[in-house]
Design a protein around this nucleic acid. Structure first.
Lengths: 338, 338
DNA sequence: GGCCGAAGCGTTAACGATATCACAAAGGCT
DNA sequence: AGCCTTTGTGATATCGTTAACGCTTCGGCC
């Protein structure tokens, strides 16, 4: 037998109270006696009543959603950020509405449009590069906008991130200090991953600043670059410029792939060639040898974004005052591959 | 200057049509002339109008959400499943509402309650073990329920999964065929990860069936077991039972950790000890040596779940007819570590 | 010319919760 | 006793969209 879905009205009727009292019994509203509240909750449970958030959303003009777009769900760095963000927001009773752009700006634009229709309280996007229409939609939205994992030149709203280019200066300096001069870079061969492209640009600038040749660039295919692409890119690097002393990879995953290729070929790391990555993925600290990397503190990015959002939502006046730029300190973790 | 949020009414007024015509212009409703539709869309864009899904959700009693719970967002296996699921659903205009339980059944129960309040069209949960209250909520919900990554003895609704225990029979048989008899298992030391616990049970049963001792069980801590825990567990295994010929790890991540520990100690793999994992993570195919593993086809699970959902939603009568159990074939991928 | 069906659009009434106001009853104070 | 709070509850309007239904208009056809 198929009962129809229960509403507050059903609960109210059964309990012999008004709908409004049932509503109050379901919130932390003090103006219901504890006895009534308990009784109503029990009756609701018996009836199998489930609170309908869609109706409350419309009436209160609040959804308790925070929309988030990331390039890929299958990336430990972004996963960590979302995890931390979502943990903190959950404490405040908010939920994350997540969408993946697949490193595609056109897709990101669509996602942003869809997400905004759901009336989130705030929106968090990855990176500072977006289509014109996406920028416009975000600007016009009357909610806090937070760009992360980047330090955009012209931010849309708030920012919680770091300069991807700057991390590469740190890495090149580290390698130069180790006496390396012939240094290569392995990364995506398109700009689909804008943060990866920023790191490539940062690498080139850092090499120039050190007076070194910056032409050893290996394109590893369309982003995202993963372990396998890292391995085959390392193969091409060793074939093309056998005298390379160090290689910086766009992420730890490609760095690990590169490392395995060296192991397969019997090339000693770091003796013959040093390898560095980015992201402080778990594998960098576990592989043998361990991989030198940059830790961009992904969880911190998520946690800070969450704090910022909660702060802005608590005091909406603050939002209008000034866009906040929160810079996250990254850290170079020297390890066995350099 | 702060304009107030625009509604269909504003668009209608500006366009000189009724609200209903605006509504129709925003759907694939034929009963609006193409000229009017285009004009209305343009006016809406000019005004900065954004369609309000919360109102539509209430009125139509449709949210176009599919709720999904997974143990952790930071796990490539579940990420693949969600990715495939979400891709297919997106084609049908549906969105995934994702939540992570942190391998905690009490947390999962809370999540399910919160998710159901949002009135999803269907709900996908990971595994077949849930708290009593969670089971009850799912059973009472009038939407399709799909359990994945498992083959529960008493399914709540539909199932898209495989027997975790059976995969371990396959793995033990593989090792026995390679002449191994002293075989150990590395996994979590609690049952927080129910699928991991199923694999441990499957391992024990398979060893018995082969007439082998099944006492070499290494507890690697509280799930999820990652690379680092795998490495330290391998250390304990080598210290406790140095004559072990093979070890089955609860996942490729712990298997890789175990492999690195062997490399650090100078223990030859597979010469002195064979290592096997589970999950067909990318690292299993890239590490040196490559790791023998089980491929449970995570993307296929997601894709099949999506198809099932779309099928059920298209023909609601079907849902009442019979619960579908879709078994996914897993595959043993023999590699260099065995 | 008259009839008919379809296309295009408008009017009205929901959808299920909550903000707001109103108000009765119960205390607390002088 | 009289007045003022405080507390608990109810009635009503409302959030923005859409389903259902009804009214025109218009072209085609006999």
């Amino acid at each position: 037998m198929q009962h129809s879905a229960k509403t507050m009205k059903d609960v109210a009727r059964t309990a012999g109270v008004s709908v409004m009292t049932v509503s109050r019994a379901f919130k932390s509203d003090t103006s219901v006696s504890e006895a009534t509240r308990v009784r109503i909750r029990e009756i609701a449970d018996d009836l199998g009543y489930v609170f309908d958030a869609t109706a409350a959303n419309l009436r209160t003009q609040k959804t308790n959603f925070v929309a988030v777009t990331i390039p890929s769900i299958n990336n430990a760095n972004f996963a960590d950020t979302v995890d931390a963000l979502s943990d903190r927001l959950a404490e405040a009773g908010m939920q994350v509405l997540l969408a993946y752009s697949g490193y595609d700006m056109a897709k990101e634009e669509q996602l942003i449009e869809q997400l905004l229709r759901r009336r989130p309280e705030a929106i968090v996007v990855t990176g500072g590069s977006h289509s014109d229409r996406a920028r416009k939609m975000l600007t016009n939205s009357r909610i806090p906008v937070i760009e992360t994992w980047d330090l955009p030149a012209a931010p849309i709203g708030h920012v919680v991130g770091f300069s991807n280019a700057a991390t590469m200066h740190g890495m090149v300096d580290h390698l130069v200090a180790k006496g390396k001069t012939r240094i290569a870079f392995i990364g995506g061969d398109t700009d689909g991953d804008t943060r990866g492209a920023d790191r490539r640009r940062g690498f080139i600038a850092a090499m120039r600043r050190n007076g070194l040749a910056e032409d050893r660039l290996i394109g590893a295919g369309k982003p995202p670059i993963s372990m396998r692409e890292g391995a085959s890119a390392m193969g091409r690097l060793l074939d093309t410029w056998p005298d390379t002393q160090a290689v910086v990879c766009v992420s730890d995953l490609s760095a690990f792939g590169a490392l395995t290729e060296c192991q397969r070929r019997g090339v000693n790391v770091p003796g013959e060639i040093a390898i560095a990555g980015f992201g402080a993925y778990e594998i960098a600290g576990v592989s043998h040898p361990t991989i030198t990397t940059i830790d961009p503190h992904p969880r911190l990015i998520g946690a800070q974004a969450a704090e910022l959002i909660l702060d802005l939502l608590n005091d909406p006046a603050k939002e209008k005052r000034k866009a906040r730029i929160i810079e996250i300190d990254w850290q170079l973790r020297a390890a066995e591959t350099t």
